[in-house]
Computed example of a mutant assay.
Amino acid sequence: MLCDGQAHALLELLHIYGVRHSAALSDLVADALLCEFEPAQALSAIESALETPRVTARVTTGFDTSHAPAVAHTPAAAHAPTAPPPKASAATDADLRRTELRRRNNRACLLTCMDRFGEAEEELLQCVRLAPTELAPNFNLALLRWQVGEKDAAADGWLRFRRQPLEAPPNFYEELATRWQPTGMPPPPTSQVSGHVDPLSAATLDRAMLRHWAAFRSRKAMELHWGRAKDGPWL
Protein backbone atom coordinates (compact mmCIF):
# COMPACT_ATOMS: atom_id res chain seq x y z
CA MET A 1 0.00 0.00 0.00
CA LEU A 2 2.89 2.34 0.68
CA CYS A 3 4.30 1.70 -2.78
CA ASP A 4 0.89 2.55 -4.26
CA GLY A 5 0.70 5.87 -2.42
CA GLN A 6 -1.95 4.66 0.03
CA ALA A 7 -0.18 5.64 3.24
CA HIS A 8 -3.31 7.15 4.79
CA ALA A 9 -5.39 4.07 4.00
CA LEU A 10 -2.68 1.86 5.51
CA LEU A 11 -2.68 3.85 8.74
CA GLU A 12 -6.46 3.63 8.93
CA LEU A 13 -6.32 -0.13 8.40
CA LEU A 14 -3.71 -0.58 11.13
CA HIS A 15 -5.87 1.55 13.44
CA ILE A 16 -8.97 -0.56 12.74
CA TYR A 17 -7.09 -3.73 13.65
CA GLY A 18 -5.61 -2.09 16.74
CA VAL A 19 -1.99 -2.60 15.73
CA ARG A 20 -0.98 0.91 14.75
CA HIS A 21 1.07 1.28 17.94
CA SER A 22 2.61 -2.17 17.76
CA ALA A 23 6.41 -2.09 18.16
CA ALA A 24 6.69 -4.87 15.58
CA LEU A 25 5.11 -2.59 12.96
CA SER A 26 6.81 0.62 14.05
CA ASP A 27 9.02 0.88 10.97
CA LEU A 28 6.03 0.48 8.65
CA VAL A 29 4.00 3.02 10.65
CA ALA A 30 6.90 5.48 10.66
CA ASP A 31 7.29 5.21 6.87
CA ALA A 32 3.57 5.76 6.39
CA LEU A 33 3.53 8.77 8.71
CA LEU A 34 6.50 10.26 6.93
CA CYS A 35 4.64 9.88 3.63
CA GLU A 36 1.78 11.77 5.29
CA PHE A 37 4.20 14.59 6.24
CA GLU A 38 3.94 13.79 9.95
CA PRO A 39 7.62 13.63 11.02
CA ALA A 40 6.85 14.16 14.72
CA GLN A 41 4.48 11.17 14.83
CA ALA A 42 6.90 9.09 12.74
CA LEU A 43 9.63 9.92 15.23
CA SER A 44 7.39 8.85 18.11
CA ALA A 45 6.75 5.49 16.42
CA ILE A 46 10.45 4.78 16.01
CA GLU A 47 11.29 5.91 19.55
CA SER A 48 8.63 3.58 20.95
CA ALA A 49 10.25 0.69 19.12
CA LEU A 50 13.70 1.61 20.38
CA GLU A 51 12.39 1.66 23.96
CA THR A 52 10.94 -1.85 23.60
CA PRO A 53 13.18 -4.48 25.27
CA ARG A 54 15.28 -6.16 22.61
CA VAL A 55 15.61 -9.51 24.38
CA THR A 56 12.73 -11.92 24.89
CA ALA A 57 12.79 -15.66 25.56
CA ARG A 58 11.49 -16.42 22.09
CA VAL A 59 14.03 -14.25 20.36
CA THR A 60 17.06 -15.34 22.33
CA THR A 61 16.38 -19.07 22.11
CA GLY A 62 15.14 -19.19 18.57
CA PHE A 63 12.47 -21.75 19.60
CA ASP A 64 8.74 -21.37 20.09
CA THR A 65 7.87 -23.46 23.16
CA SER A 66 4.34 -22.11 23.60
CA HIS A 67 2.85 -25.37 22.26
CA ALA A 68 5.22 -27.80 23.97
CA PRO A 69 3.43 -30.69 25.70
CA ALA A 70 3.40 -30.65 29.48
CA VAL A 71 5.17 -33.58 31.14
CA ALA A 72 4.21 -34.31 34.74
CA HIS A 73 6.47 -35.74 37.47
CA THR A 74 9.59 -35.51 35.34
CA PRO A 75 12.81 -33.69 36.26
CA ALA A 76 12.82 -30.38 34.45
CA ALA A 77 16.40 -30.76 33.33
CA ALA A 78 15.58 -33.88 31.38
CA HIS A 79 13.17 -32.01 29.14
CA ALA A 80 14.75 -28.56 29.11
CA PRO A 81 15.07 -27.17 25.58
CA THR A 82 18.55 -27.56 24.22
CA ALA A 83 20.62 -24.45 23.64
CA PRO A 84 20.49 -23.10 20.10
CA PRO A 85 23.47 -23.70 17.88
CA PRO A 86 26.06 -20.88 18.14
CA LYS A 87 25.52 -19.90 14.53
CA ALA A 88 21.78 -19.45 15.06
CA SER A 89 22.39 -17.30 18.13
CA ALA A 90 24.94 -15.18 16.25
CA ALA A 91 22.53 -14.74 13.36
CA THR A 92 19.79 -13.60 15.76
CA ASP A 93 22.12 -11.08 17.40
CA ALA A 94 23.12 -9.77 13.98
CA ASP A 95 19.46 -9.34 13.01
CA LEU A 96 18.79 -7.41 16.22
CA ARG A 97 21.74 -5.13 15.58
CA ARG A 98 20.61 -4.48 12.01
CA THR A 99 17.11 -3.63 13.23
CA GLU A 100 18.45 -1.26 15.89
CA LEU A 101 20.82 0.32 13.39
CA ARG A 102 18.02 0.91 10.87
CA ARG A 103 15.76 2.44 13.48
CA ARG A 104 18.45 4.72 14.89
CA ASN A 105 19.48 5.82 11.41
CA ASN A 106 15.88 6.62 10.53
CA ARG A 107 15.37 8.42 13.84
CA ALA A 108 18.37 10.61 13.06
CA CYS A 109 16.89 11.48 9.65
CA LEU A 110 13.59 12.45 11.27
CA LEU A 111 15.38 14.56 13.89
CA THR A 112 17.17 16.34 11.03
CA CYS A 113 13.81 17.06 9.36
CA MET A 114 12.74 18.73 12.62
CA ASP A 115 15.95 20.82 12.84
CA ARG A 116 17.09 18.93 15.95
CA PHE A 117 20.62 18.69 14.59
CA GLY A 118 22.52 18.03 17.81
CA GLU A 119 20.33 15.06 18.71
CA ALA A 120 20.56 13.78 15.14
CA GLU A 121 24.35 13.89 15.26
CA GLU A 122 24.42 11.98 18.56
CA GLU A 123 22.14 9.31 17.12
CA LEU A 124 24.28 8.94 14.01
CA LEU A 125 27.42 8.68 16.11
CA GLN A 126 25.72 5.83 17.97
CA CYS A 127 24.94 4.21 14.61
CA VAL A 128 28.58 4.50 13.57
CA ARG A 129 29.64 2.86 16.83
CA LEU A 130 27.18 0.02 16.18
CA ALA A 131 28.34 -0.48 12.58
CA PRO A 132 31.58 1.38 11.73
CA THR A 133 31.71 0.04 8.16
CA GLU A 134 28.04 0.67 7.27
CA LEU A 135 27.60 3.25 4.51
CA ALA A 136 24.25 4.89 5.37
CA PRO A 137 25.00 6.24 8.89
CA ASN A 138 28.45 7.48 7.87
CA PHE A 139 26.91 9.14 4.80
CA ASN A 140 24.18 10.78 6.88
CA LEU A 141 26.64 11.95 9.54
CA ALA A 142 28.89 13.60 6.97
CA LEU A 143 25.94 15.16 5.18
CA LEU A 144 24.43 16.50 8.42
CA ARG A 145 27.70 18.14 9.46
CA TRP A 146 28.12 19.57 5.97
CA GLN A 147 24.63 21.06 5.93
CA VAL A 148 25.00 22.77 9.33
CA GLY A 149 28.31 24.35 8.31
CA GLU A 150 30.76 21.95 9.99
CA LYS A 151 32.42 21.20 6.67
CA ASP A 152 35.91 20.49 8.01
CA ALA A 153 34.54 17.88 10.43
CA ALA A 154 32.30 16.45 7.71
CA ALA A 155 35.15 16.00 5.26
CA ASP A 156 37.51 14.64 7.92
CA GLY A 157 35.06 11.97 9.05
CA TRP A 158 33.94 11.01 5.54
CA LEU A 159 37.46 10.68 4.14
CA ARG A 160 38.49 8.57 7.12
CA PHE A 161 35.52 6.32 6.44
CA ARG A 162 36.55 6.13 2.77
CA ARG A 163 40.10 5.28 3.90
CA GLN A 164 41.67 8.27 2.21
CA PRO A 165 44.84 9.93 3.57
CA LEU A 166 44.34 13.25 5.33
CA GLU A 167 47.85 14.70 5.04
CA ALA A 168 48.38 14.59 1.26
CA PRO A 169 49.08 17.73 -0.84
CA PRO A 170 46.01 19.65 -2.05
CA ASN A 171 46.43 18.57 -5.67
CA PHE A 172 46.06 14.91 -4.60
CA TYR A 173 42.45 15.55 -3.56
CA GLU A 174 41.69 17.69 -6.61
CA GLU A 175 42.92 14.97 -8.95
CA LEU A 176 41.01 12.32 -7.06
CA ALA A 177 37.83 14.39 -7.19
CA THR A 178 38.18 14.76 -10.95
CA ARG A 179 38.82 11.04 -11.38
CA TRP A 180 35.80 10.17 -9.24
CA GLN A 181 33.45 12.47 -11.11
CA PRO A 182 30.06 10.72 -11.17
CA THR A 183 28.59 9.92 -14.55
CA GLY A 184 25.16 11.18 -15.54
CA MET A 185 23.26 13.81 -13.60
CA PRO A 186 23.52 12.88 -9.92
CA PRO A 187 20.87 14.15 -7.53
CA PRO A 188 21.94 16.38 -4.65
CA PRO A 189 22.84 14.26 -1.61
CA THR A 190 19.98 13.81 0.83
CA SER A 191 19.70 11.92 4.12
CA GLN A 192 19.04 8.25 3.53
CA VAL A 193 16.61 6.14 5.49
CA SER A 194 16.40 2.36 5.84
CA GLY A 195 20.06 1.87 5.03
CA HIS A 196 20.01 2.64 1.30
CA VAL A 197 22.39 5.12 -0.32
CA ASP A 198 22.20 5.77 -4.03
CA PRO A 199 25.66 5.28 -5.64
CA LEU A 200 25.38 8.61 -7.45
CA SER A 201 24.61 10.40 -4.19
CA ALA A 202 27.64 8.81 -2.56
CA ALA A 203 29.83 9.79 -5.52
CA THR A 204 28.54 13.37 -5.36
CA LEU A 205 29.39 13.54 -1.66
CA ASP A 206 32.82 12.03 -2.35
CA ARG A 207 33.58 14.76 -4.83
CA ALA A 208 32.37 17.59 -2.58
CA MET A 209 34.40 16.30 0.37
CA LEU A 210 37.55 15.82 -1.69
CA ARG A 211 37.37 19.33 -3.10
CA HIS A 212 36.72 20.82 0.30
CA TRP A 213 39.68 18.91 1.76
CA ALA A 214 41.89 20.17 -1.06
CA ALA A 215 40.95 23.73 -0.10
CA PHE A 216 41.42 22.89 3.59
CA ARG A 217 44.91 21.51 3.01
CA SER A 218 45.80 24.52 0.88
CA ARG A 219 44.60 26.88 3.62
CA LYS A 220 46.62 25.03 6.24
CA ALA A 221 49.73 25.21 4.05
CA MET A 222 49.28 28.97 3.69
CA GLU A 223 48.79 29.40 7.45
CA LEU A 224 51.95 27.43 8.07
CA HIS A 225 53.88 29.48 5.50
CA TRP A 226 52.79 32.86 6.84
CA GLY A 227 53.28 31.72 10.40
CA ARG A 228 56.91 31.02 9.59
CA ALA A 229 57.20 34.23 7.59
CA LYS A 230 56.23 36.31 10.65
CA ASP A 231 59.38 35.04 12.35
CA GLY A 232 61.59 36.37 9.52
CA PRO A 233 64.27 38.99 10.17
CA TRP A 234 62.41 41.66 8.09
CA LEU A 235 59.50 41.90 10.59
Rank of each mutant, 00 (worst) to 15 (best):
V29Q: 03
R58H: 12
H67A: 14
H21P: 00
I46G: 04
S22Q: 09
A77W: 12
V71Q: 11
R58N: 13
H21F: 08
S22Y: 05
P53R: 03
T56R: 09
T65Y: 12
V59A: 13
T60D: 13
S22T: 04
L43P: 07
A42P: 11
L28T: 10
V71W: 11
A68V: 03
A32M: 05
C35K: 13
A40N: 11
F63A: 09
L34R: 15
V29W: 03
T74M: 09
I46K: 01
L28D: 02
A42L: 04
S44Y: 07
E38H: 11
A42V: 04
A32C: 02
V55Q: 13
T52E: 15
G62Y: 03
L43G: 06
A23F: 03
P39G: 04
P39V: 01
A42S: 10
L50P: 04
E38G: 01
S22L: 04
A72Y: 12
S48Y: 02
A45N: 03
E36M: 11
A57P: 15
T74L: 09
E51V: 00
T60W: 12
P69A: 08
H21A: 13
P39L: 01
A77F: 12
V55G: 01
T65D: 15
T61G: 15
T56W: 07
L33T: 06
L33W: 08
F37A: 13
A76M: 10
L34Y: 12
V55K: 10
T56Y: 04
H67M: 08
C35D: 15
V59D: 13
A77L: 10
H73F: 11
A76E: 14
S22W: 07
D64G: 07
V71R: 14
P53T: 05
S66Y: 02
R54Q: 13
Q41P: 07
A45M: 01
L34V: 01
A30L: 04
A77T: 05
H67I: 00
A72C: 06
D27T: 07
S66P: 08
L33Q: 14
A32D: 04
Q41H: 13
E38M: 09
E51S: 13
R58M: 07
A70N: 10
L34M: 10
P75Q: 03
S22M: 01
F63S: 09
R54I: 06
L43Y: 08
S66K: 08
Q41N: 14
S48L: 01
T74D: 08
F63L: 10
S44C: 09
T65H: 14
A24L: 01
L28S: 06
D31P: 06
A68R: 12
H73W: 09
A45S: 11
T74C: 15
T56C: 04
D31M: 10
L34D: 15
P39T: 02
S48G: 15
T74H: 15
L50T: 02
T61N: 15
L43F: 04
F37Q: 14
E47F: 00
A24H: 05
